[in-house]
Amino acid sequence: MLPAPFDYHAPETTEETLALLDQLGDEGKVLAGGQSLIPMLKLRFASPGHLIDINRVQGLDFLDERDATLRIGPLFRHKAAERSSLLASRYPVMAEAARQVADPIIRNRGTIGGSLAHADPAGDWGSVMLAMDAEFVLRSKGGSRNVKARDFFSGPFGTTLQPNELLAEIHIPATRGRSGGAYMKLERKVGDFATVGVAVHLQMDDGKVRSAGIGLTAVGPQNIKAEKAEAALRGQALDDATIKEAAALAAAAADPTSDQRGSVEYKRNVVRVFTERGLKRARDRAREGARG
């Protein structure tokens, strides 16, 4: 690897990190798992003047559920998500997404927070966060603000995160009642970015949908929340006709482009097929699963 020259910082506290971000502004780039940043440095697509490596900051790799909120730290890695029994039992959409992110080597290092801040429209976690109605805590030297996932993404590789801010925490409303989820991903090979991904997160009350979340991967300039499809499910019993209708609405919400992975028509169809299959899988899981 032969990147352009840069300075390297390894802060040991969050305060130190925020001070560096404040001081370096546009020239500073946070290094978490490095699974996107390092290849960009290698290809010289990115040449930040300073890298701020947060891996020595203690206590950033947490995952816990308290006060009706699932909280995730910025150094929580894909591999930890893949192995978490909490996610496997209560947040199947996350567990299923985790094991489909890239390949095992990348999952060992890469972080959920880093993936979200990188905001690749083909990244898997953005759709999962949209489906789960997550909220991000953005900290800076001066303070902290919370931004909903749906307000966070702004086009390809764009977010509302400011250069002086750190994505310090991810908050997800804890599931209640019977819930189920699924992450459907079409990839050309293990390690490839998604051709299409669909995240589905359902919460049920008395056999009816209390809330439905559907996030779409790689079919638009950013991860998409299929809000019309979600609305069509709310309050409904999940019969096949309702699922079909929601799947059609999700396909309509997709805004893909044609490339080597497939045509617009193809990708839209996969969104439809995956939404349908994902909803059925999530419904079955909600029926089988324990009450939260």
Binding site: L43, D103, R188, K189, V190, G191, D192, F193, Q260
Partner: peptide, 23 residues
């Protein structure tokens, strides 16, 4: 493969796909 301007569309391993033991 190439686009109409002759740009190579398989210039790294994210675009030029090699099978791994997984698939």
């Amino acid at each position: 493969t190439f686009d109409e301007e002759g740009n190579c569309l398989g210039s790294n391993f994210t675009d030029y796909l090699l099978p791994t033991s997984w698939e």
